[in-house]
């Protein structure tokens, strides 16, 4: 059975079309990744599934309940870890968890045991009775995860769980999440713009760009769709268009993608094509700063499918356009 079914989801915020027909299905017990640049619609999708945001068209079901028609049943089944920490900073970690648990219908000794177990499991036991104001970013994030899990939900939504964390805290949280996924028999829907995170945690994923799903599969299968290697050329000057034309015209180049001063060419055999690419650029009078050959990674898949969306200014423009509708800062919704 599918734990989450999303079909043709559309959502418009005033001038901005946030979702333009998103569809995917998440199987029970898997970790499913929603990967995409800022402003692609990942958070909007999760917020719709968490019953926070209404949608205009389509169908959404979580744990067998319709998000639209039975939001109360959906809320019973889910834990939601929002993109921005929802921790009550004036309360201690334990107080945060006890209140959340009571609201979610857990009581008495069962609640106290569960709270202790989560504090212990997420490495917060030593800080359980300190106000969350004193917590580091990583600790606050772990408390967010604990808040989402307190009532043993069937489905957990993690909206960019490690954004803003330093690499060490990120790695620690990944370990926690992997362990929890094993221990808690959970279905997890994870949004992220870290390819590494999706590669590490997600069994399957979709790449979302500009409000639609552009590709779906396991990280392995997606890497295989990009057969062969990528040759990345760092250009000396901003003459990318000329370089792109020259390289894309080569018969052994399947595709060439320009990203700022980086030109990536997808070829069957990197080592063999480097010389051809370099001489083609030489002929076009393009100066080269550096050349690297890479086996395909999720990076290439991502770049291949999201194309220009990858560029930071694009993402910022989308985020800025979204901000007035929500009345908040330029974070993705």
């Amino acid at each position: 059975m599918d734990a989450i079914v999303v079909e043709g989801l559309r959502k418009r915020y005033k001038q901005v079309l946030a979702l333009d027909g998103v569809s995917f299905a998440v199987r029970e017990g898997e970790i499913f990744g929603l990967l995409g640049p800022n402003g692609a619609g990942k958070s909007t999708t999760v917020r719709i599934l968490a019953t926070l945001t209404a949608f205009d068209e389509g169908r959404a079901e979580v744990a067998g309940h319709s998000v639209q028609h039975d939001p109360a049943a959906v809320r019973r089944a889910i834990g939601y870890v929002p993109q921005e920490s929802g921790v009550d900073r004036d309360a201690t970690g334990r107080e945060n968890l006890l209140l959340q648990g009571r609201i979610q219908g857990v009581r008495g000794a069962a609640l106290r045991t569960r709270v202790d177990e989560l504090l212990e499991g997420l490495g917060l036991a030593h800080a359980a009775d300190r106000t969350a104001r004193t917590y580091s970013g990583g600790m606050r994030r772990r408390l967010d995860v604990a808040l989402g899990l307190v009532h043993r939900p069937a489905v957990l939504f993690l909206d960019e769980p490690t954004t803003g964390l330093d690499p060490e805290a990120r790695a620690a949280l990944w370990e926690e999440l992997e362990r929890l996924a094993r221990v808690e028999t959970l279905t997890i829907l994870l949004t992220t713009h870290y390819l590494e995170e999706a590669d590490r945690l997600a069994g399957r994923l979709v790449i979302v760009s500009r409000g639609t799903v552009v590709v779906e599969g396991t990280p392995e299968a997606l890497k295989q769709t990009l057969q062969g290697d990528s040759v990345t050329v760092e250009l000396e000057a901003a003459d990318g268009e000329r370089a792109h034309t020259a390289v894309a015209a080569l018969p052994e180049v399947h595709e060439a993608v320009l990203d700022g001063r980086q030109l990536r060419a997808f070829v069957d055999q990197g080592a063999r094509s480097v010389a051809t690419i370099v001489s083609a650029l030489d002929a076009a009078a393009v100066s080269i700063h550096a050349v690297t050959i890479a086996r395909p990674s999720l990076d290439e898949v991502y770049l291949h499918y999201t194309g220009r969306d990858f560029r930071a200014e694009d993402a910022e423009a989308v985020a800025a356009a979204r901000a007035p509708a929500g009345g908040r800062g330029g974070r993705e919704r």
Partner: peptide, 13 residues
């Protein structure tokens, strides 16, 4: 501002 209200809205509160 602290997203506490949103957190409660995604619960059975």
């Amino acid at each position: 501002d602290r997203h506490v209200l949103e957190r409660f809205l995604a619960t059975r509160s």
